[in-house]
Amino acid sequence: MHLPIRAILFDLDGTLLDTAPDMAEAANRVLADYNQAPLTDEQIKANTSYGARGLLTAGFGAIPAHLDADQLRREFLHYYQQNICEGTSVYRGINKVLAYLEAHQIPWGIMTNKPGFLTELLLPFFPELLKAQVVVCGDTLAVAKPHPEPLLHASELLGIPHTACAYVGDIEKDMIAANAARMHGLVAGWGYIGQTHHPEAWQAREVLPAPEALIDMLEQQRKCQ
Protein backbone atom coordinates (compact mmCIF):
# COMPACT_ATOMS: atom_id res chain seq x y z
CA MET A 1 0.00 0.00 0.00
CA HIS A 2 1.33 3.43 -0.96
CA LEU A 3 1.65 6.20 1.58
CA PRO A 4 1.05 9.86 0.66
CA ILE A 5 3.94 11.27 -1.37
CA ARG A 6 6.66 12.74 0.85
CA ALA A 7 9.62 12.74 -1.57
CA ILE A 8 10.24 12.86 -5.30
CA LEU A 9 12.90 11.05 -7.30
CA PHE A 10 13.48 12.09 -10.89
CA ASP A 11 15.03 10.42 -13.89
CA LEU A 12 17.48 12.75 -15.65
CA ASP A 13 17.44 12.39 -19.46
CA GLY A 14 13.98 13.14 -20.81
CA THR A 15 12.62 14.12 -17.39
CA LEU A 16 14.71 16.93 -15.88
CA LEU A 17 16.96 17.65 -18.85
CA ASP A 18 16.46 17.62 -22.60
CA THR A 19 19.79 16.01 -23.45
CA ALA A 20 18.66 14.80 -26.88
CA PRO A 21 20.61 17.39 -28.93
CA ASP A 22 23.97 16.38 -27.46
CA MET A 23 23.30 12.65 -27.24
CA ALA A 24 22.02 12.58 -30.81
CA GLU A 25 25.10 14.49 -31.98
CA ALA A 26 27.37 11.90 -30.36
CA ALA A 27 25.39 9.04 -31.90
CA ASN A 28 25.44 10.67 -35.32
CA ARG A 29 29.22 11.10 -35.15
CA VAL A 30 29.59 7.37 -34.47
CA LEU A 31 27.16 6.53 -37.27
CA ALA A 32 29.06 8.80 -39.66
CA ASP A 33 32.29 6.96 -38.82
CA TYR A 34 30.61 3.81 -40.16
CA ASN A 35 29.02 5.50 -43.19
CA GLN A 36 25.51 5.34 -41.74
CA ALA A 37 22.78 7.95 -42.19
CA PRO A 38 22.08 10.29 -39.27
CA LEU A 39 19.18 9.63 -36.94
CA THR A 40 15.76 11.01 -37.77
CA ASP A 41 13.95 13.30 -35.33
CA GLU A 42 11.53 10.50 -34.42
CA GLN A 43 14.39 8.04 -33.79
CA ILE A 44 16.03 10.60 -31.50
CA LYS A 45 12.82 11.25 -29.59
CA ALA A 46 12.02 7.56 -29.17
CA ASN A 47 15.49 6.39 -28.17
CA THR A 48 17.39 9.07 -26.25
CA SER A 49 16.25 7.71 -22.88
CA TYR A 50 17.66 4.33 -23.87
CA GLY A 51 21.13 5.83 -24.06
CA ALA A 52 23.94 4.92 -26.41
CA ARG A 53 22.66 1.44 -27.17
CA GLY A 54 19.16 2.69 -27.95
CA LEU A 55 20.32 5.45 -30.27
CA LEU A 56 22.96 3.37 -32.05
CA THR A 57 20.66 0.39 -32.49
CA ALA A 58 18.09 2.72 -34.04
CA GLY A 59 20.73 4.21 -36.32
CA PHE A 60 22.14 0.90 -37.53
CA GLY A 61 18.74 -0.83 -37.60
CA ALA A 62 20.50 -3.54 -35.63
CA ILE A 63 24.11 -3.60 -34.51
CA PRO A 64 25.95 -5.54 -37.27
CA ALA A 65 27.41 -8.84 -36.15
CA HIS A 66 30.93 -7.81 -37.17
CA LEU A 67 30.87 -4.76 -34.88
CA ASP A 68 31.44 -4.79 -31.13
CA ALA A 69 28.49 -3.15 -29.36
CA ASP A 70 30.63 -2.31 -26.33
CA GLN A 71 33.22 -0.61 -28.54
CA LEU A 72 30.50 1.42 -30.26
CA ARG A 73 29.23 2.50 -26.85
CA ARG A 74 32.75 3.59 -25.84
CA GLU A 75 33.03 5.63 -29.06
CA PHE A 76 29.66 7.23 -28.32
CA LEU A 77 30.71 8.11 -24.76
CA HIS A 78 33.94 9.64 -26.04
CA TYR A 79 32.07 11.96 -28.41
CA TYR A 80 29.37 12.74 -25.85
CA GLN A 81 31.88 13.62 -23.14
CA GLN A 82 33.59 16.08 -25.50
CA ASN A 83 30.37 18.09 -26.02
CA ILE A 84 28.21 17.12 -23.05
CA CYS A 85 26.34 20.41 -22.72
CA GLU A 86 26.27 22.20 -26.05
CA GLY A 87 22.52 21.90 -26.64
CA THR A 88 21.19 20.40 -23.40
CA SER A 89 18.59 22.39 -21.45
CA VAL A 90 16.27 22.10 -18.47
CA TYR A 91 12.70 21.38 -19.49
CA ARG A 92 10.33 24.31 -19.18
CA GLY A 93 8.52 24.07 -15.86
CA ILE A 94 11.14 22.02 -14.02
CA ASN A 95 12.59 24.99 -12.15
CA LYS A 96 9.08 25.88 -10.99
CA VAL A 97 8.61 22.31 -9.71
CA LEU A 98 11.94 22.32 -7.87
CA ALA A 99 11.14 25.69 -6.31
CA TYR A 100 7.81 24.29 -5.12
CA LEU A 101 9.49 21.25 -3.57
CA GLU A 102 12.01 23.47 -1.80
CA ALA A 103 9.31 25.85 -0.54
CA HIS A 104 7.32 22.96 0.90
CA GLN A 105 10.39 21.14 2.24
CA ILE A 106 9.74 18.06 0.10
CA PRO A 107 13.01 16.12 -0.36
CA TRP A 108 13.97 15.25 -3.91
CA GLY A 109 16.74 13.47 -5.75
CA ILE A 110 17.93 12.08 -9.06
CA MET A 111 18.03 8.42 -10.01
CA THR A 112 19.42 7.94 -13.51
CA ASN A 113 20.96 5.13 -15.52
CA LYS A 114 23.46 7.65 -16.88
CA PRO A 115 27.02 6.69 -15.84
CA GLY A 116 28.29 8.52 -12.81
CA PHE A 117 31.21 10.26 -14.54
CA LEU A 118 28.89 11.78 -17.17
CA THR A 119 26.31 12.81 -14.56
CA GLU A 120 29.04 14.53 -12.55
CA LEU A 121 30.21 16.38 -15.68
CA LEU A 122 26.70 17.48 -16.66
CA LEU A 123 25.01 18.57 -13.44
CA PRO A 124 27.32 21.56 -12.69
CA PHE A 125 25.95 23.25 -15.82
CA PHE A 126 22.59 23.40 -14.01
CA PRO A 127 23.03 24.77 -10.46
CA GLU A 128 19.38 24.11 -9.64
CA LEU A 129 19.99 20.38 -10.10
CA LEU A 130 22.97 20.45 -7.75
CA LYS A 131 20.44 20.99 -4.95
CA ALA A 132 19.33 17.35 -5.27
CA GLN A 133 19.64 15.69 -1.88
CA VAL A 134 20.70 12.41 -3.50
CA VAL A 135 22.09 11.43 -6.90
CA VAL A 136 22.13 7.73 -7.78
CA CYS A 137 23.59 6.79 -11.18
CA GLY A 138 23.53 3.76 -13.40
CA ASP A 139 26.81 2.48 -11.99
CA THR A 140 26.37 3.52 -8.36
CA LEU A 141 25.28 -0.04 -7.54
CA ALA A 142 25.90 -3.36 -9.25
CA VAL A 143 22.41 -3.18 -10.81
CA ALA A 144 20.54 -0.44 -12.68
CA LYS A 145 16.96 0.19 -13.75
CA PRO A 146 14.63 -1.57 -14.27
CA HIS A 147 15.94 -3.28 -11.12
CA PRO A 148 14.31 -1.57 -8.13
CA GLU A 149 17.42 -1.51 -5.93
CA PRO A 150 18.73 1.90 -7.09
CA LEU A 151 15.37 3.48 -6.26
CA LEU A 152 15.28 1.77 -2.88
CA HIS A 153 18.84 2.94 -2.25
CA ALA A 154 17.88 6.51 -3.15
CA SER A 155 14.87 6.50 -0.83
CA GLU A 156 17.03 5.12 1.97
CA LEU A 157 19.54 7.94 1.45
CA LEU A 158 16.68 10.44 1.60
CA GLY A 159 15.42 8.85 4.80
CA ILE A 160 11.90 8.50 3.39
CA PRO A 161 9.98 5.18 3.23
CA HIS A 162 10.00 3.90 -0.34
CA THR A 163 6.20 3.63 -0.39
CA ALA A 164 6.04 7.38 0.29
CA CYS A 165 8.32 8.25 -2.65
CA ALA A 166 7.30 9.03 -6.21
CA TYR A 167 9.51 8.31 -9.20
CA VAL A 168 9.12 10.45 -12.30
CA GLY A 169 10.49 9.00 -15.55
CA ASP A 170 9.73 8.91 -19.25
CA ILE A 171 10.17 5.26 -20.31
CA GLU A 172 8.48 2.02 -19.41
CA LYS A 173 11.39 0.58 -17.46
CA ASP A 174 11.17 3.60 -15.15
CA MET A 175 7.65 2.51 -14.26
CA ILE A 176 8.72 -1.14 -13.99
CA ALA A 177 11.37 -0.06 -11.48
CA ALA A 178 8.93 2.17 -9.58
CA ASN A 179 6.35 -0.58 -9.31
CA ALA A 180 8.96 -3.12 -8.22
CA ALA A 181 10.12 -0.66 -5.55
CA ARG A 182 6.48 -0.03 -4.57
CA MET A 183 6.81 3.67 -5.29
CA HIS A 184 4.33 6.00 -6.95
CA GLY A 185 5.21 5.76 -10.65
CA LEU A 186 4.64 9.00 -12.58
CA VAL A 187 5.29 9.24 -16.32
CA ALA A 188 7.02 12.39 -17.57
CA GLY A 189 4.73 12.87 -20.54
CA TRP A 190 6.90 15.71 -21.83
CA GLY A 191 9.93 13.40 -22.26
CA TYR A 192 11.22 11.07 -24.95
CA ILE A 193 8.02 9.17 -25.69
CA GLY A 194 7.96 7.95 -29.27
CA GLN A 195 4.99 7.21 -31.51
CA THR A 196 5.21 3.47 -30.79
CA HIS A 197 5.25 3.93 -27.01
CA HIS A 198 2.06 3.58 -24.99
CA PRO A 199 2.59 5.16 -21.57
CA GLU A 200 -1.03 4.62 -20.61
CA ALA A 201 -0.21 0.89 -20.51
CA TRP A 202 2.86 1.25 -18.26
CA GLN A 203 0.94 0.70 -15.02
CA ALA A 204 1.86 4.14 -13.73
CA ARG A 205 -0.16 6.02 -11.17
CA GLU A 206 -0.49 8.86 -13.64
CA VAL A 207 0.87 10.24 -16.92
CA LEU A 208 1.82 13.87 -16.27
CA PRO A 209 1.38 16.05 -19.38
CA ALA A 210 3.77 18.75 -18.09
CA PRO A 211 6.05 19.25 -15.09
CA GLU A 212 3.58 21.63 -13.45
CA ALA A 213 1.08 18.75 -13.23
CA LEU A 214 3.25 17.35 -10.43
CA ILE A 215 2.59 20.53 -8.43
CA ASP A 216 -1.13 20.12 -9.04
CA MET A 217 -0.98 16.53 -7.78
CA LEU A 218 0.90 17.50 -4.63
CA GLU A 219 -1.44 20.42 -3.98
CA GLN A 220 -4.44 18.11 -4.29
CA GLN A 221 -2.81 15.72 -1.84
CA ARG A 222 -2.26 18.58 0.63
CA LYS A 223 -5.95 19.52 0.46
CA CYS A 224 -6.99 15.94 1.16
CA GLN A 225 -4.78 15.52 4.23
Rank of each mutant, 00 (worst) to 15 (best):
E172D: 12
H147N: 03
V207Q: 02
A58V: 07
T48P: 00
I160P: 06
L130R: 14
H184L: 01
M1G: 04
D33H: 15
L122Q: 12
C165T: 09
M183G: 03
H104G: 08
A142P: 00
S155F: 02
Q105S: 15
C85G: 08
L129E: 12
V134A: 08
R182W: 02
L121V: 12
L17T: 06
V90Q: 14
D170F: 08
D18P: 01
M111D: 03
I94R: 13
F10N: 00
P146E: 02
P161V: 04
C224A: 14
V135A: 11
L55P: 03
M175V: 01
G159A: 06
Y79H: 15
P209V: 02
L98A: 11
T48N: 04
T48Y: 12
V30P: 03
H184Y: 01
A142R: 00
R29L: 12
L67R: 07
I160E: 03
A180N: 06
E212R: 05
G93T: 01
D68M: 01
Y100L: 08
Q225N: 10
F126D: 11
V187G: 01
K45Y: 09
L67K: 10
T112R: 04
P161C: 05
V207R: 00
L98I: 10
A58G: 13
G191R: 08
E120W: 03
E102D: 15
P161A: 03
G138S: 03
T40D: 13
T48G: 05
H184W: 00
G169V: 02
P21Y: 12
A62V: 10
G191T: 07
I176A: 04
K223C: 15
P107Y: 14
A7T: 07
P127W: 07
G59E: 11
T19P: 08
A103P: 09
A62E: 15
D216Y: 05
N35Q: 14
D18K: 01
A52G: 08
K173W: 02
L16G: 14
A144F: 01
G14D: 04
A204D: 00
T112L: 13
Q133E: 15
L67I: 07
P209N: 05
D68A: 10
Q71S: 11
L121H: 13
L152T: 00
V168S: 07
E86D: 05
K131Q: 14
C224H: 13
V97N: 06
D41S: 12
A24H: 06
P38C: 15
L56E: 13
N35A: 15
A181V: 01
A65L: 12
T163P: 07
H153Y: 06
T196E: 14
Q220E: 11
T119R: 10
I160Q: 00
I160A: 03
A142H: 01
G14M: 07
P161M: 10
R6I: 11
I160Y: 05
P148R: 00
L130H: 13
A27S: 05
